[in-house]
Each structure stands twice: as C-alpha cells, then as structure tokens.
C-alpha cells in the first residue's frame, strides 16, 4: 500500500472530526470529535515515521496519546461538574462569556 493512502485517510478522518465539531452540541460528543481529530493526526505521524524509516514519529504519537488522555480527563470532569450544577449539556446554551 502506498503511504499516500494513509495520509488521505488521515485527512478524511480529520475532516469528519471537524464536521462533527461544527454540527454537534453535546459536550460529550464534541470531546469524541476531538479524539477523532487527534487520532487522525496520529495516523499521519505514523505514516510519516514509516516513510522515513525512523521511530521518532512513534514517540510523538505516544505523547499525543498522553495529551489526549489528559484532555479527556479534564473535559469529562467539566461535564460532570456541569451536570451536578444542573446546567444544560448543550454548548450553545452555555454563553455566559459571550460579549
């Protein structure tokens, strides 16, 4: 398989994640769409690592996974806090900071 195919697939997955980010309003699903985009980036990193034949891209992808895990933990903590305060789980209704 030519490595270009992996990069095109990664671009497609990134675009799907971006579309989800624009369409959905539930903060939980928005976090899932962020995961989609980060994983698309990981796929591209691994394809480039394979094309250069060195493993430093794997280290980058591992760090991306760590950052994604941190983002999930903080994001889910925020969602649980929103639920406890009986705020609506809809990002369009959370507009207190809008000027």
């Amino acid at each position: 398989m030519a490595l270009e195919w992996y990069l095109v697939l990664s671009g497609l997955l990134f675009a799907v994640g971006a579309a989800g980010l624009l369409i959905r309003r539930n903060p939980l699903v928005i976090l899932l769409c962020l995961e989609l985009m980060l994983n698309a980036g990981n796929l591209a990193l691994l394809a480039f690592a394979r094309s250069h034949g060195n493993e430093e891209g794997h280290v980058f992808a591992l760090i991306v996974m760590v950052v994604a895990a941190c983002e999930v933990v903080v994001g889910l903590g925020l969602i649980v806090a929103m639920y406890r305060r009986r705020l609506p789980l809809n990002v369009d209704e959370m507009r207190g900071l809008k000027g």
């Binding site: 398989m1 030519a2 490595l3 270009e4 990069l7 095109v8 671009g11 497609l12 990134f14 675009a15 799907v16 971006a18 579309a19 624009l22 394809a47 394979r50 094309s51 250069h52 034949g53």
Partner: peptide, 28 residues
C-alpha cells in the same frame, strides 16, 4: 466546510514533492 478542509489537506499532502510517500516506504 469539512469537505473543503479535506480537499485542502489532500492538496497539501499530495502536492508535496515527497517521493518517499509514493512507495511502501523503505525497508525497515
């Protein structure tokens, strides 16, 4: 907008002159 983003990424990736991307990559 997402479709436009995909087209843009594809042009950026496929338009590069990186010849290593065309094959299976070097033997590891």
């Amino acid at each position: 907008l997402a479709g436009a983003l995909f087209v843009e990424i594809s042009i950026a990736v496929l338009g590069t002159a990186l010849t290593t991307l065309e094959g299976d990559g070097p033997d590891v």
